[in-house]
Design a protein around this nucleic acid. Structure first.
Lengths: 178, 178
DNA sequence: GTCATCATGTAAACCGTTACATGATTGT
DNA sequence: ACAATCATGTAACGGTTTACATGATGAC
């Protein structure tokens, strides 16, 4: 019962959308969940093997010679629902940008401004990605579309907040230089 | 030259504010950097020992029998400045809340709403903490105050964005129930 | 035929948390 | 005396990334 890792949730979840190979799971996680989740190769394959041994997923090789697609079993779908209902393990915060700015006096206003500009640019890029994903989901709605848009919206809000903060902070830092 | 871990930055940074013991470093990180950084015991003590061996910090036991305070050496201050100037290692995103909501169809609108309400409550608590820290910094300004307020502002922006998102998403999810 | 991409896996290294263990100091 | 807190460390474990290794498939 002591599930610590969320990898299982991500893998089962990916397969709940549609059956796919381990390689495709990794791609799906990188591309679709990329803005709020990440998994590496080294996690996905062992997890898939374990899930298969436990009967939560099953190979579904419909006439392939190499590679196989996996799909959720009924037990796997129940497992996913159960995992989703468990309390969310909180990941400790680790924000390298803020860590640097907190000790900004050791760095000076100009170097700090550069750090902030980089954060702003990341937020801009993120906002563009969000817009693209939103357009794609709205153009081609899946049965999950409403939920996906909730996560996209979270990304949009976060990115816009970061933009506003960056703008404000650049002003503050500029005042420190004078 | 291959510094991967940011623990060293956090520890040197804490000591740059004022000399203190390892125990106090851990407290300072938990209390002051807590909203954007975390370190555990098991990291701090070995890091301090290594930094001492490398000559970046030095014990400064002014008449103590047990425990010792550490302070930065000149080399340590340079080391901190150098580390702060290095590119920020990006931590892969891991947002358990969004991971759940993305697969929300497996969970249903009501359970998702509960997840969102928990996120909203965390944001509210965070906003209260930010306000308290801001008040404290403004009441008793340190030479680092301007930089600290930049990080507090980041927390405030992020928390307010999360509140707005939660509000919006609760409406969306309520519409799914009908 | 060769290149890009699909596909699967393992091993080592690294990072970080947790639990355990121990003892000093200070306030009541 | 006793409790709370200060203080320091280590060992084991678990999770994650990275690098390495290998080969099939399909497009050109």
């Amino acid at each position: 019962m002591s599930r610590q890792s969320q990898t299982e949730v991500a893998v089962l979840g990916a397969l709940s959308v549609q059956p796919m190979s381990g390689y495709a799971v990794r791609q799906a996680i990188a591309e679709t969940l990329g803005h709020f989740w990440s998994e590496s190769f080294g996690q996905i394959y062992p997890t898939l093997a374990r899930l298969e041994a436990e009967g939560f997923v099953t190979p579904d090789s419909a006439g392939r010679t190499s590679g196989s697609t996996y799909r959720l079993t009924a037990a796997g779908r129940r497992r996913l629902a159960a995992l989703l209902r468990e309390p969310i393990p909180s990941t400790p915060p680790r924000n390298g940008t803020l860590l640097r700015l907190f000790f900004g006096a050791q760095l000076g206003p100009e170097a700090c401004a550069e750090v902030v500009r980089e954060a702003r640019d990341r937020a801009l890029a993120s906002l563009a990605t969000m817009t693209a994903i939103r357009a794609e989901v709205e153009r081609d709605p899946d049965r999950n579309a409403a939920y996906w848009l909730v996560t996209v919206s979270a990304g949009e809000h976060a990115a816009r907040a970061q933009l506003a903060w960056a703008q404000e902070s650049l002003t503050t830092l500029a005042d420190l230089t004078r």
